[in-house]
Design a protein around this nucleic acid. Structure first.
Length: 179
DNA sequence: CCCTGATTCGC
DNA sequence: GCGAATCAGG
């Protein structure tokens, strides 16, 4: 689904705005969705607007130093609602509720980690837990953000919830009354 | 190791 | 035109 992502006028416009706004290529790619930072950089060059922020000089549009990150979050949300590309696809692939399940796994030790960093998609990086917290359609939507297990999209805590043994699920399903 | 942009080059 | 791979750097 949504395989036809390309540089439409809208996407190019957004790219221009964000790039000139000082966003890094990777962040722009995340907001656009469906493209990598390389693609963004490549496009930026083709558009002939490479190289902003010279290390030695600059400071002329420092007026917008404190931009509200809200706009960025909104764009991210818009993407979630419409195409839901790579970076945010995980929001829907998990049929598990976003609250701790009431089952007691033998040693009920929920893993003592620095839980709840709560980050926006802007601060979410590849090595961070992508467990969604809250409503993706509201500005307060966050991701867990804790250190994720290498190779997995979740931290140890959320991985336990996400990847439950088949046996556990069967039991739950029966309890839930299915079939 | 995390990240950044720049460039090349096969498609 | 596009973007993965690669390069160069912080």
């Amino acid at each position: 689904m949504e395989a036809g992502l390309s540089w439409t006028d809208e996407r190019v416009a957004l790219l221009r705005r964000l790039w000139e706004d000082g966003q890094s290529a990777s962040k722009i790619a995340a907001q656009l969705g469906g493209v990598t930072r390389n693609a963004v950089i490549g496009k930026v060059h083709r558009l002939g607007l490479a190289g902003r922020a010279k290390p030695g000089e600059e400071s002329q549009s420092v007026a917008r130093v404190a931009r509200a990150p809200v706009a960025e979050i909104e764009t991210a949300i818009a993407v979630v609602e419409t195409e839901a590309p790579e970076p945010v696809a995980i929001v829907s692939h998990r049929p598990v509720p976003d609250f701790p399940l009431p089952l007691a796994p033998a040693a009920a030790a929920p893993t003592p980690l620095a839980v709840s960093q709560r980050v926006t998609i802007m601060d979410l990086r590849e090595s961070m837990c992508r467990w969604p917290l809250g409503d993706p359609t509201t500005p307060d939507f966050r991701f867990c953000g804790a250190r994720s297990i290498t190779g997995l999209p979740y931290c140890t805590h959320h991985a336990e919830i996400a990847y439950q043994p088949a046996a556990e699920r069967k039991r739950e399903r029966r309890v839930a009354g299915f079939r």
